[in-house]
Design a protein around this nucleic acid. Structure first.
Ligand code: SF4
Ligand code: SF4
Lengths: 151, 151
DNA sequence: TGAAAATAAGATAAACGGGTCTCAAAATAA
DNA sequence: TTATTTTGAGACCCGTTTATCTTATTTTCA
């Protein structure tokens, strides 16, 4: 898997919060999100704690508490979430797993992989939560996995 | 990690065999490969067994035995190795891990990911063992990880 | 103040990938 | 034939990821 499960959950939750942020300024409870996104509550909690300590979210305990995006959704890119949870590995690691990959002694697939890797990075970096989340509504896309499979 | 460790080992061993195949027609012992590539012998054995049962290698027991590419190195692409070990997942799975990814109800990053995914597939498919292995020699590239690291 | 609601934190367990180990089976060569 | 060399096959171990569970801690509100 390209992204860890934790990372995809983090992205889905972030998109969910970005969509909510346009409607209210309140905190969103993790329990509610975990139900709507079909993600284990405790697992999601741990993931969002990572995003909180990474400075992407702010959290508040107690009734009316929950979690919210720290910055405006337009200012948060998908790469922020990915890096906070999975680290930079995907964008820096060698495709063939050789330690110390570099330009001087590159492996046979270096050029192609470096190209794809960069494209992946720029794609994630170029997508902010606001625009991505708005597409969910306008194009009737899905966020949760409660739909039937096809292909 | 994009490719599993087993898969990268399989690719490295295949490239090694492709390089050897141009010099002799003998079987190559897994023990020798495991030493030269710095890969655990038993683990490499298991991986190459997968390639054998996938029809990519042929094997022979006993002294002078070992393993060899079944077809000519020019006719084996990297995608053959990847699919035999890791399956088609990398080229078909959803980036966000949602089951049943598809065109009808795609997730918000579908278009970009599908594009990158396709590029990845065509890159692997377009690289055959012969050409890739020959670059190892002609450009003094590396196959094993016994070299010092440099970013 | 006290009950309830929510995150924080950490222990625990299951599943998986990576890796090791042992023994069997086959082929060679003495 | 017998010893040796090799792959084949499977059990087993270990660390990480995924997931669950339990126990604080903080906040709100009656
Ligand atoms: S493609 Fe480049 S970064 Fe990846 S393993 Fe090869 S040399 Fe290293
Ligand atoms: S990008 Fe396409 S294939 Fe990947 S999860 Fe989204 S809808 Fe599915």
């Amino acid at each position: 898997m390209v992204l860890s499960k934790a990372c995809t959950y983090g992205i889905l939750a972030s998109l969910y919060m970005a969509r909510e942020a346009t409607r209210s300024k309140d905190y969103i409870s993790i329990g509610r999100m975990s139900k709507e996104l079909n993600i284990s509550f405790h697992f999601l909690t741990k993931i969002l704690q990572q995003l909180t300590s990474a400075g992407i979210l702010i959290s508040m305990k107690g009734p009316k508490g929950g979690v919210a995006l720290k910055r405006k959704p337009e200012e948060i890119s998908l790469v922020d979430i990915v890096v906070a949870i999975d680290g930079m590995g995907l964008f820096t690691e060698c495709l063939l797993g050789l330690p110390g990959c570099g330009e001087e002694k590159p492996c046979p697939v270096h050029d192609d992989w470096a190209n794809i890797r960069a494209k992946l990075f720029h794609t994630f970096r170029g997508k902010n939560l606001a625009e991505t989340a708005s597409r969910i509504d306008s194009m009737n896309l899905r966020l949760s996995s409660e739909f039937p499979m096809n292909i």
